[in-house]
Design a protein around this nucleic acid. Structure first.
Length: 855
DNA sequence: CCCTGGTCCCAACTT
DNA sequence: GGGACCAGGG
């Protein structure tokens, strides 16, 4: 009996069609990953294909790791030769680290090094890019109120994703602003090259360029990979598409798996046409549809399908499930965001207990549109004493202290990386200030050097006052020594190699600490009087007290060296604040990561590549009982219980998508993705009033249009009935201030039983519990809190006719047809209302004149 | 030169 | 709620 017998006929067909192009249209929950992994196993086990001639591309490391694991399970331990299962970006880095220098062109000036990136290139993340664009704009004297670095970067990235170079942008620009962008874009490219850096987009673009331009390299990869699989094909962008075509070579053994209803990355350049037009690209293509959903109940699947059916741009399909019926889709309308989150926490707490009683492993997810929504949920979970995981938001590698140390490592790998150099040149403060930097930058600009090159010039020509020169030299020596360590021509002191404890550095002489600054040099803390001699002649030769050169330091050693010599941790310890200690913890974590990297036998560039290419979604831990994350991050996952919060116009769909009908369709797909994550229970929630930024007054919300698209017979309203077993959080919160509320649900970390508010019957609240689901009660609620709160005039009973249209209402216009009111300005007959028409976009109309009717 | 506190403006999703 | 930037004092 073969493992193929576990597949349904369509899945089996998808797995067994190994030769030629195949497009697998895999609906949500239809066993997509299963098909990919079985296909790989089938190729290896049944067809005798060499494992390392198989290449599978995913979007996240997490997906890649999962596939590797599942393939290994199926094949029962792979030989040394393994299929390459990798993200697009990691694959590209791999190719580029091997062959990017074949793209170099000889310099016009004899004796000068060739032009082009070297294998030591660094990867610029978004904040690096931002810094670079900002500095270019400053240099070009662009008014950053007219044109923000953000916008410019967005346009550059858009251009790159559509494979347009600065010249094309310039030639296609019709306005001075775009011309300016093209100019900045051109400079940006030059600066990246000078810094020997590539941004995320470049990783794909340069790989495509390389494969196109250098036949030997292309042929190498064509020979090497005979079977190619692409996951999440609906989210590929133009460069990824080109890459795939290039790799497919002439054999066309390409297998693309995707679902057009789950295309949610068009803003990142994903082109839904790639999947819609696959048959045109490969006329001999075989199409396989997987339409049986193994995940969700019928109710959930029907609700999700009903929503996505409203999209015009889709191939259409009929997903079905054998899980008849099921719980109805829950809907809860909370008075405010806090209550919305507490409702979810309360419900999840109950679910965890029930699952536990049934002996099941519980998994619940709270999904939201924007990361900022996580805060309220986190607070609610904490009040309930629930352990939760947050995916995304502020990631480890974005923390200041981590970015600092990573930047040091990047400079060590590639000192021409001026953005990283700028970040660390005075971190921690070592007396290199604005004026010093200005001199360096001027020299760099004049001589066409990187900042690192300019530092050498400045030191040699003594272009600064002695004090500044000394500070600069201390930095230059630090980097030079670290580089020598890494190259194996310089090694740190014996004592420190043998003894990794971080407190090894000697105490500074007290009088130096007290001194007002003239002699205050953080560097002297650690290396004391030896610092000056270490690198008079860089790269330093053997220095008394140092191990003989020869052995290259690994990343963790480099980090420890940097931490000691800059006094980074020491200075944090002196701060003696909780924040500082948490930073120290983070740094230790980074050192641990470097140790792990060493154990895997990785080099510095591999460590840095990893740091650059981990994504938020990779942080997902399948063992977590409660996971909070964005809808985007949830793609590919499933949970028995799913909450979808913030179902409000402007939040979801997000207001930025109102302008473009295509964008609304993408929001709808996102909604579909979210809903189809649920296996057994799906609950949609909305806050009637929501605060936009922390301090602002709450604003009335309009229910998301997606709510209306769910057939009413599939929905059950929650929260209006009181539960038998005592008050629930959302009822308790009613009519009382959050402060009392917080007290009510106090959680004692020491005591499990007290921690479970749903277990112990509560005393009756002093004020009778009331539900605040109606507008009047909300007014009362805020009045009782002594807040001035201007209730927007929300006509409960419309006297019919055309006056008083409010956001969210459906209207009909004689010329534009049906639309949705987006915004209302002014009062009475003078009021102007902005209406979103599906086919005409946003229109601003004067209510008095526009012949609008309620639709 | 460095740090602090105030102010302004922002806030979608992410490899 | 918070990050980025700037002015002003130490």
């Amino acid at each position: 009996m073969s493992f193929l017998d576990q597949l349904n006929p369509q899945q089996r067909e998808a797995v067994e069609t190994t030769e030629g192009p195949v497009l697998i249209l895999a609906g949500a929950g239809s066993g997509k990953t299963r098909v990919i992994t079985y296909r790989i196993a089938h190729l290896i086990e049944n067809l005798g294909v060499r494992p390392d001639s198989i290449l599978a591309m995913t979007f996240t490391n997490k997906a890649a790791a999962e596939m590797v694991e599942r393939v290994e399970k199926l094949v029962g331990g792979l030989s040394v030769a393994k299929p390459l299962i990798s993200t697009f970006h990691s694959f590209c880095v791999r190719v580029l680290r091997r062959d990017i220098e074949t793209l170099q062109i000889p310099s016009a000036v004899p004796g000068k090094p060739p032009i082009g990136h070297t294998k030591q290139f660094v990867i610029y993340d978004e904040s690096d890019q931002q810094q670079l664009v900002k500095s270019i704009m400053k240099r070009l004297g662009v008014d950053d109120k007219q044109l923000t670095p953000r916008t410019v970067l967005g346009q550059i990235s858009w251009a790159k994703n559509h494979m347009r170079d600065p010249q094309e942008v310039y030639l296609n620009s019709g306005d001075p602003k775009t011309e300016r962008v093209a100019q900045i874009y051109a400079e940006y490219k030059k600066e990246l090259l000078r810094a020997n850096a590539l941004d995320f987009d470049d990783l794909l673009l340069e790989t495509v360029r390389l494969l196109r331009a250098v036949a030997t390299v292309r042929e190498y990869y064509n020979r090497r990979y005979e079977y190619i699989l692409i996951d999440e094909y609906q989210d590929t962008n133009r460069p990824q598409y080109e890459l795939m075509r290039m790799l497919a070579g002439s054999k066309h053994n390409i297998c693309a798996v995707g679902d057009e209803d789950q295309s949610i990355y068009s803003w990142r350049g994903a082109d839904i046409r790639n999947i819609l037009e696959f048959e045109q690209d490969f006329p001999e293509a075989k199409i396989v549809r997987l339409e049986q959903n193994y995940r969700s109940t019928q109710n959930i699947l029907e609700a999700a399908s009903a929503v996505v059916r409203n999209n015009l741009k889709r191939k259409g399909k009929n997903l079905w499930t054998s899980r008849q019926g099921g719980t109805k889709v829950g809907y809860y309308e909370a008075p405010d965001g806090e209550n919305e989150a507490l409702f979810a926490a309360d419900h999840i707490a109950r679910y965890l207990r029930e699952a536990h009683d049934r002996g099941e492993e519980p998994h619940a997810a709270v999904l939201y549109r924007t990361n900022s929504q996580s805060r309220l949920y986190e607070e609610a979970m904490r009040r309930y004493g629930l352990k939760y995981h947050v995916v995304g938001g502020f990631s480890f590698y974005e923390r200041a202290e981590i970015k600092d140390l990573i930047s040091y490592l990047k400079v060590i790998q590639n000192p021409d990386d001026s953005i990283s150099l700028l970040r660390v040149i005075n971190t921690p403060a070592r007396g290199i200030g604005k004026t010093t930097l200005e001199v360096i930058e001027r020299v760099a600009l004049e001589a066409g050097l990187s900042l690192w090159g300019a530092i050498g010039e400045v030191l040699q020509r003594q272009l600064l006052p002695p004090r500044a020169l000394a500070a600069l030299k201390s930095f230059r020596d630090l980097i030079a020594d670290a580089r020598a360590m890494q190259a194996g021509t310089f090694v740190e002191r014996l004592t420190e190699t043998a003894e990794p404890e971080p407190a090894a550095s000697p105490e500074p002489p007290p009088e130096e600490l007290e001194d007002s600054g003239a002699r205050f040099d953080p560097l002297s803390f650690d290396f004391g009087d030896t610092t000056p001699e270490t690198s008079e002649e860089t790269p330093a030769g053997p220095v008394p007290g140092f191990r003989a050169p020869g052995e290259a330091a690994h990343t963790a050693e480099l980090l420890k060296f940097l931490i000691d010599r800059t006094g980074y941790i020491k200075l944090l310890e002196e701060e003696d604040t909780p924040e500082a200690f948490s930073r120290i913890e983070n740094i230790r974590e980074l050192v641990n990561a470097a140790m792990d990297s060493k154990d895997r036998g990785e080099t510095l560039d591999q460590f840095l590549d990893h740091a650059a290419l981990v994504s938020d979604a990779d942080a997902y831990d399948a063992r977590a009982q409660i996971t909070l994350m964005t809808l985007h991050a949830a793609k590919g996952l499933e949970f028995p219980l799913v909450f979808l919060g913030g179902m409000e116009e402007g939040l979801f769909p997000h207001s930025r998508t109102f302008l473009q009908p295509d964008d609304i369709e993408e929001e709808r797909r996102l909604c579909y993705v979210g809903m189809t994550r649920a296996m057994d229970t799906l609950i949609l929630t909305r806050a009637v009033y929501r605060r936009r930024y922390g301090t602002d007054l709450p604003e009335a919300s309009v229910p998301s249009r997606f709510l209306e698209e769910v057939p009413p017979q599939l929905v059950e309203e929650l929260g209006t009935r009181k539960r038998q077993s005592g008050a629930t959080a959302f009822v308790r919160s009613s009519g009382r201030s959050p402060e009392t509320h917080a007290h009510d649900t106090h959680y004692d970390y020491e005591n499990e039983d007290q921690s479970a508010p749903w277990k112990a019957p509560r005393q009756k609240p002093k004020t009778p519990a009331r539900s605040y689901n109606s507008i009047d009660n909300i007014a009362e609620f805020f009045a009782s809190r002594g807040k001035r709160f201007n209730l927007p005039k929300l006509p409960v009973e419309e006297p019919k006719g055309k006056k008083g249209f409010r956001p969210g209402q459906k209207v009909r216009h004689p010329k534009y047809g049906e639309g949705t009111v987006y915004q209302r300005e002014g009062d009475g007959e003078e009021a102007k209302i902005t209406v979103q028409f599906p086919r005409f976009g946003l229109k601003k109309l004067v209510e008095k004149y526009a012949q609008l009717e309620r639709a």
